[in-house]
């Protein structure tokens, strides 16, 4: 009888140890599954970053082109804001212009066709009169919602040095 009681005790402890191990393993498995479901594959992250950059860069290019084509109008709009506090014309030229608010699927792939929203965030003249230097800063933002329904965004800043001359179009050189 004593021998049986000794055996029974050991079996009970073995079951307890097995349950503890099983619980730990289950917890590890659940944690692994959770982490895997929340982690975005690297391929997708690289794809998103490049796609957003291309869309944002397209907009900075378009904004620079607009500045080139209508330089005097932009300067006039900018000066109106600086001297009279009326930024309507400047905003209409840049951030409020419909051509600078796009939804694009031009960049796409077999595994991602979600359209990207892009817009011009700011377009400003950076002037340093001490050094007689002027630059045009264009900031574009691209944003989209990924397959996990999370927003992903990227901002691109282009700074272009300018030389302003009377009655001529400026020479623009990409500084950054």
């Amino acid at each position: 009888m004593k021998g049986f009681s000794l055996n029974n005790k050991r079996r009970a402890s073995a079951v307890a140890v097995a349950i503890v191990f099983a619980a730990i393993l289950l917890q590890l498995a659940l944690a692994y599954v959770y982490i895997t479901s929340q982690t975005k594959p690297q391929t997708v992250q690289i794809d998103e970053s490049i796609r957003l950059e291309c869309e944002a860069r397209s907009l900075t290019e378009l904004a620079l082109l607009k500045f080139f084509l209508f330089t005097s109008d932009y300067y006039a709009a900018w000066e109106t804001g600086v001297h009279h506090g009326d930024w309507t014309h400047s905003n209409k030229f840049s951030v409020d212009a419909p051509e600078f608010k796009i939804v694009s699927s031009a960049s796409n792939s077999s595994f991602n066709t979600t359209p990207v929203n892009a817009w011009i965030a700011t377009m400003t003249l950076l002037t340093d009169s001490r050094y007689n230097e002027e630059a045009l800063q264009i900031v574009a933002t691209a944003k989209y919602t990924d397959q996990m329904n999370r927003p992903v965004s990227k901002q691109i800043t282009g700074i272009y040095s300018l030389s302003r001359e009377v009655n001529s179009l400026p020479d623009v050189e990409m500084a950054q």
């Binding site: 794809d47 490049i50 796609r51 291309c54 860069r57 397209s58 907009l59 290019e61 378009l62 620079l64 082109l65 080139f68 084509l69 209508f70 005097s72 694009s104 031009a106 960049s107 796409n108 792939s109 077999s110 595994f111 001529s168 179009l169 623009v172």
Partner: peptide, 24 residues
């Protein structure tokens, strides 16, 4: 077959000294 497409705009900034607003 998988495909991957990237697209970008490019403006014409060449010969801008000859271009003025009226030619647009």
């Amino acid at each position: 077959i998988n495909h991957y497409t990237l697209s970008m705009l490019k403006g014409n900034f060449m010969g801008f000294t000859q271009v003025n607003n009226s030619s647009v």
